[in-house]
Design a protein around this nucleic acid. Structure first.
Length: 593
RNA sequence: GCGAGCGUAGCACAAUGGAUAGUGUAGUGGCCUCCGAAGCCAUUGAUCCGGGUUCGACUCCCGGCGCUCGCACCA
């Protein structure tokens, strides 16, 4: 018997074939529209007969009858099929089919193989985190890192070769001022202990010492020119700044489970912008044009980026002073990712305030690549809202300073330690610390991933560390409880021994849990297609909830061997799905907490 | 001014155009001689306003209102 990984996709194909088989007029136009159903209606529902019938003035229930009659017998074996309401076709998996599915998809590798069709053979470049060098990461850098990493893992799981690229802000006018400050006030002891903190101090000193129109500002500009023209001292300083910055960033990435394949910052594209200028102006008609001394791109077909608006908002490819800006480096970046990495898709993860920039960038790239006959990859700007305090304003410390990411993660772990200690008073401190390290970080990550990234989100320690609700502690607790059962039984959680004894689920809670497990492929599909990890998070939360109900109602370690085997099978698959899913979101899991 | 995103119970969130809009918290009432009570079960309470499209709208379109943000040489 063949069991499909994505049952909804399998039903969709079967319904389409059945429509033809039934001899429906215009059957090729019939779209079954199969989706995961509300559990009270079954496992899957096909909605397509309603629209199809309406457009042809047919009775939707009669159409549904014809299609259902033409479905192959194997589906009648696996599902209770009913027609309901105005013409929905409902499919409810029978217990034996649930068991067959659970037996078939038994390991992380099998889940991965099942999911890998979506992006098989494709290469995707994901640009995320992307902080500025010589500055500490702060709370504003959290979402890009967390959401970006989850998207990388989802894309990789669905078959793509993923290239993680940290597009550092490592070039620009600020380095003139930083070098100016560094040469005058650098403190070697401070550089040795916390280099990046010292660089921030030096930049601030340099910036304060170089007001507009001052001789000091001219000096800072000369430092910048020296850097840009390759003067050895300044280049060496700049390299040092990048190195210490990356080392500091990596400490944070380690906590978040992030490893970049490349750190191709803006400086990398320095020598690649001339080609951009040339190619954008040599086409007929030219894509870029001169305006007020700058080289800009207008998109006249677009309501906001046309030149024919009250306040034109052009894409600034080259500034009037001849310098490149982030438009030009981003164009060069898109080309490099397409040519060098052979990207089929490019995802850039930044906050929503840059939406205009990336819309203009993508419009320009499409015109440019079309004019030069370059293959155009899929281009996605993944945006997210702001992180605010409970007052709805940007998150700040009590004294009004920006919150450093390092401090925020440390506080998460400290707060988790207090809670872990309350719940496990007799546990050795070292173990409590280890657990708190995972719970604290996971809570911060999951708070960000559990909700739709488009909205602003309110940062609340109490809510993210809560033991109830859609939170990391709740999910990690469900994982830990399952591990606990296997420990008690003296079995490894991956131990398949005894599974052949397992019978089909019978109790309401067993059936509810088994049905939820079969929806994992759809959760992965939706999260991957929309690049919105919260769909996966929501699924995992519901799964953990169904497990908790099952765990409460049905005792696993019972005498009856067949009953015990079938419940252990449910535990094993729940654990597999929860751990696989949480790891896809970038979280670490625990065996006890 | 122009534009974008957001607007769902007291609060924080969910709902891939589908059936009676889900969950947590807060409130109320239950469940530990039973694999982890960091849990489970029950219950009260909501789609900003006005039009439109659709068999069907929280979802799509138009017009308001509110919040957040962006609009020429920072990135």
């Amino acid at each position: 018997m063949h069991v499909s990984f994505n049952l909804a996709a399998d039903l969709d194909a079967a319904l389409k074939a059945a429509a033809t088989q039934a001899g429906l007029a215009d059957a090729t136009a019939f779209a079954p529209e199969v989706r995961t159903a509300d559990p009270k209606h079954g496992d899957f529902q096909a909605n397509g007969t309603l629209g199809y019938a309406k457009a042809r003035k047919l009775n939707p229930r009669a159409v549904a009858d014809q299609i259902v009659a033409a479905l192959p017998d194997r589906l009648r074996t696996d599902y209770e099929i009913t027609i309901a309401g105005p013409g929905f076709i409902n499919f409810a998996l029978k217990p034996a089919a649930l068991l067959a599915w659970l037996r078939t998809f038994a390991t992380a590798a099998q889940l991965r193989t099942g999911a890998a069709a979506a992006h098989a053979g494709q290469t995707w470049v994901v640009d995320y985190s992307s902080p500025n060098t010589a500055k500490q990461m702060h709370v504003g850098h959290l979402r890009s890192a967390v959401i970006g990493e989850a998207i990388c893992r989802l894309l990789a799981f669905t078959g793509a070769r993923v290239i993680r690229d940290n597009h550092l802000g490592d070039w620009g006018t600020q380095f003139g001022k930083l070098i100016y400050g560094y040469k005058r006030w650098a403190n070697p002891a401070a550089l040795a202990t916390d280099a990046i903190e010292e660089l921030e101090r030096l930049y601030k000193l340099g910036n304060d010492a170089t007001p507009e129109g001052s001789p000091a500002l001219d000096e800072a500009r000369r430092e910048l020119v020296a850097l840009q023209t390759g003067e050895l001292t300044n280049v060496a300083l700049w390299k040092k700044f990048s190195e210490v910055s990356l080392a500091a960033f990596q400490q944070i990435y380690d906590r978040l489970g992030i490893t970049f394949d490349h750190n191709l910052g803006e400086s990398f594209y320095n020598d690649k912008v001339d080609r951009v200028y040339r190619e954008l102006t040599e086409t007929t008609p030219p894509i870029a044009e001169s305006s007020a001394g700058a080289l800009v791109v207008f998109h006249d077909e677009h309501p906001r980026f046309s030149r024919n608006t009250e306040r034109p908002n052009p894409f600034m490819v080259r500034k009037a002073d001849g310098a490149s800006g982030y438009a030009s480096t981003d164009l060069a970046t898109a080309l490099y990712r397409t040519e060098h990495f052979k990207a089929d898709g490019i995802v850039v993860v930044t906050d929503f305030r840059q939406a205009d920039h990336f819309e203009q960038l993508f419009l320009t790239v499409r015109k440019w690549f079309a004019a030069k006959n370059y293959r155009v990859p899929e281009l996605h700007h993944v945006t997210f809202g702001a992180v605010t305090g409970e007052d709805g304003k940007a998150l700040k410390t009590r004294s009004g300073d920006v919150i450093k990411l390092k401090a925020l993660l440390a506080e998460a772990v400290d707060r988790a330690f207090v809670i872990v200690s309350e719940k496990n008073a007799d546990m050795p401190e070292a173990e409590r610390r280890e657990i708190a390290g995972i719970v604290g970080i996971a809570s911060v990550q999951y708070a960000d991933l559990a909700q739709n990234r488009s909205s602003n989100y309110v940062f609340s320690w109490d809510k993210m560390l809560a033991l109830d609700g859609n939170t990391a502690p709740y999910l990690l607790y469900a994982v830990a409880r399952i591990h606990s059962i296997f420990r008690k039984a003296g079995l490894a959680p991956t131990d398949a021994a005894g599974e052949t004894l397992a019978t089909a689920p019978e109790t309401p809670t067993e059936i509810m849990l088994a049905r939820k497990l079969t929806k994992f492929p759809d959760a992965i599909r939706v999260a991957g297609e929309t690049l919105r990890p919260h769909y996966l998070g929501l699924y995992l939360y519901e799964l953990a909830g169904d497990y908790s109900s099952f765990n409460n109602a049905d005792k696993v370690l019972v005498e009856d061997a067949a009953l015990r085997a079938r419940r252990l099978l449910l535990c094993a698959r729940t654990l597999l799905t929860l751990e696989t899913g949480l790891h896809l979101l970038g979280l670490r899991t625990l065996t006890r907490m």
